[in-house]
């Protein structure tokens, strides 16, 4: 059960591994994890359904391509993860072995859902991402190394500077990317804020 992941927070400093290039802008979470696979009460096994419909219509889909088997770094384009807030999408990616995503930009809810699972999303420019995708397509064995603190991503001869939003970066570096314990830590302060709000007592 991946729920154990919920407590296994430790610092995430660098991610390194083989890449998986997935081209296209605005790839929404309905495509990453079609809605019918949300008819479940656990996240177990979701990795089997990643991009299921896209893969059915495109036999050369990168998630079906054995050249990228075992990849841990997904390389995407703009506005990845738009649409539905379903955590099932990053849960599927996590369970398939993805540990970092590098792209031009990310939908906000998706980026937050990924962060809380310990998957940093690195943002870089269009041309830089294009170079990285091409490199991985040409040499799938190349190791991508992504450094959370500096945002520097290196792979073979490619070196790009990407960024993780500052608060998420600090959360990864300090190991506090999964915040529940921290939120519970000073619950008395939560109560104090609630007590000041007029609607809590019914005005």
């Amino acid at each position: 059960m991946m729920a154990t992941q919920a407590t296994a927070a430790g610092p995430i400093l660098t991610i390194s591994g083989r890449g998986l290039p997935l081209r296209g802008n605005d790839i929404d979470t309905d495509r990453i994890m079609p809605a019918r696979f949300l008819r479940v009460v656990s996240f177990d096994g979701l990795e089997q359904h990643l991009f299921e419909d896209d893969r059915a219509t495109d036999p050369r889909h990168p998630f079906s391509n054995p050249r990228y088997a075992g990849a841990t770094v997904l390389v995407v384009n703009a506005n990845f993860g738009s649409g539905s807030s379903r955590e099932h999408a990053p849960q599927g990616l996590l369970r398939s072995g993805i540990r970092a995503i590098i792209g031009e930009s990310f939908a906000e809810i998706f980026q937050g859902n990924s962060a809380i699972l310990g998957i940093p999303c690195f943002a870089a420019g269009h041309d830089e991402i294009g170079r990285l995708q091409m490199l991985v397509e040409q040499t799938p064995d190349v190791i991508i190394e992504a450094d959370v603190r500096s945002g520097v991503v290196t792979a073979g001869s490619v070196r790009i500077t990407a960024s993780v939003p500052p608060a998420l970066r600090e959360a990864f570096l300090s190991g506090q990317w999964n915040p529940t314990a921290m939120l519970l830590d000073r619950y008395d302060e939560v109560r104090r804020v609630a007590d000041r709000l007029p609607y809590i007592a019914g005005f």
Binding site: F43, S85, E87, N113, I116, T180, L183
Partner: peptide
């Protein structure tokens, strides 16, 4: 929010 954040709100009535 996502499901892990649903957990956070259930547990702490707050979000990061």
């Amino acid at each position: 929010i996502g499901t892990s954040q649903v957990r956070d709100v259930l547990a702490s009535q707050s979000l990061a």
